[in-house]
Every structure is written in C-alpha cells, then in structure tokens.
C-alpha cells in the first residue's frame, strides 16, 4: 500500500461554541483521488483549510506532505496546490501573466515558466487566449485554468474545493480528465464535491455529516455496505442524519 501523504487524527475546529469540524481522523495515500463529500455546512471547507495551512486546528494533529499542520504551515504551502471554491486568479492579469505570477512565487525560473506555459496552453487548446484577460474567459475555462495553475509548480498534493461548481456536464467531464492527467504525473488529489457522479470517479471517499466523518471507503465498498445502487443513495442515507441545517 502506498505511503500516506496526509494523516489526520482527531482534527477539530471550533468557532466559539460551534464545532465546525469534530474530531475527524483519516489518511490519504500517495497518488489517490480522495473525495471529501458532505452537505453544505458539514465542515468540508473548514477541514480542508486546516490541511492547507490557512487555518489553525483547535485540537488534534496531522501532517500534510510530512509537515505538521499546526506548526509548519509555510512548509506545507511549498508542497501543495490549492484551488478554492471562489474563483481566485487575478481578473486584471492576462492568462500567461497569472501563470507566470503563481509559478514565480513557487520559485520556478522565468525561462522554465515560459516554456511550460506554452506547452500547457497548447495541450489545453488555450494558445489563442494566452493574452486574454482572465476576466473575459467563460467560467468553465477559468476553472480549467485555475486548476492548471494550481498544479503548474508540480506540487505533491492538490486540494480542490468544489472545483466544478456551476459548470456544465461536458466541462465537468473535461475537468475530470485534467484531474486524471495530474494523477498520472504522481500528484495526489484531495477534492470536495457536491456531485455524486463525481464521487464515483474517486478512489476513496469520505462523507462528512455535522463535522464528523460518517463513512470512508471506496465508492464500490460503500455502495455494497449500504445496499445502495449509487453514491447518490449512499449520500442521502448518511446525510439524512444531519441535524445542522444547511446554509
């Protein structure tokens, strides 16, 4: 079995007396696609932000790429890529300028960036848009670009927070092809999603309900155990127990 690149034990985040993430423990193995599922408000994004070094855990500990999530956040940041739920490339920079900026701040050299940019844009069929302001791109393209930027510096792990929100099924399918390409390069993918068909594409999924992980296994095992025909049914059975109202 491949080594674990993310290890978490009893990870907890409280905001005042609200426990957003409640003692979760799991491991993610190198090279897998790990689906992090849960209803709105279940605590997925909060948990993910702790893994990325954007938020300090209240309790529990864990490591990402071998670094402590409570103390070595800046070390973790060197080794991961992150694509947030909210689109976050610079709208007032051109496509190539965004790539150059983010690759540059991860320490890549300008020559290497320039060569890899052309290679990436050709592969995506984006070459014509090299000088387009990101603001002008359609949403689906923006998201594909944001993902490509998140893995441009070849991180060990990439965290994707609802990367396909609001795009059409064809673009979602293309997006997942990009994810598979990243996995082939040896990047571990940690992805949150609402779409249960996407859950089927993951190697393993965890399902969070009210800040806790209620189930964690491969989609096939989960369906078998819960006698469900689809991940959608698995999710409904588990999410029904939720007491927190979705936001």
């Amino acid at each position: 079995m491949p080594e674990a690149v993310i290890k978490v034990e009893n990870l907890t985040k409280r905001f005042g007396d609200f426990t957003a993430v409640d003692h979760i423990s799991f491991e993610v193995r190198k090279g897998e696609i790990f689906g992090f599922l849960g209803a709105n408000g279940a605590g997925k994004t909060t948990a993910m932000r702790m893994l990325c070094g954007l938020s300090r855990p209240t309790e529990g500990h864990g490591t990402v790429a071998g670094f402590d999530i409570a103390r070595q956040q800046e070390q973790i940041k060197k080794n991961i890529g992150y694509m947030s739920q909210k689109f976050s490339l610079y709208n007032d920079l051109k496509v190539w300028e965004n790539i150059r900026l983010f690759a540059g701040i991860y320490g890549m050299k300008p020559k290497r960036i320039a060569a890899k940019t052309d290679e990436l844009l050709n592969r995506l069929g984006f070459m014509a848009e090299k000088n387009t302001f990101v603001e002008k791109l359609p949403l689906g393209w923006k998201q594909k670009l944001a993902f490509s930027v998140a893995i441009f510096h070849e991180p060990q792990i990439v965290f994707l927070d609802e990367p396909t929100g609001g795009v059409d099924p064809i673009t979602r399918r293309q997006f997942w092809e990009l994810i598979y390409e990243a996995v082939e390069q040896g990047i571990t993918v940690f992805v949150t999603t609402h779409y249960m068909d996407e859950a089927e594409y993951c190697d393993r999924v965890s399902i969070m309900v009210d800040g806790r992980i209620e189930a964690l296994d491969s989609p096939r095992e989960l369906k078998k155990r819960m006698e469900a025909r689809s991940m959608d049914e698995v999710f409904r059975q588990l999410a029904r127990k939720a007491r927190r109202s979705a936001d």
Binding site: C52, G53, L54, E74, K77, K78, I80, Y82, S84, K86, F87, S88, L89, Y90, F102, I105, Y106, G107
Partner: peptide, 10 residues
C-alpha cells in the same frame, strides 16, 4: 478571493 490564493502559497 485572490488573497487566499496568496495565503496558501509560500
């Protein structure tokens, strides 16, 4: 949201 992308970088 771009600040978050900066914050998650080294």
């Amino acid at each position: 949201g771009t600040l978050e992308q900066i914050n998650v970088s080294p």
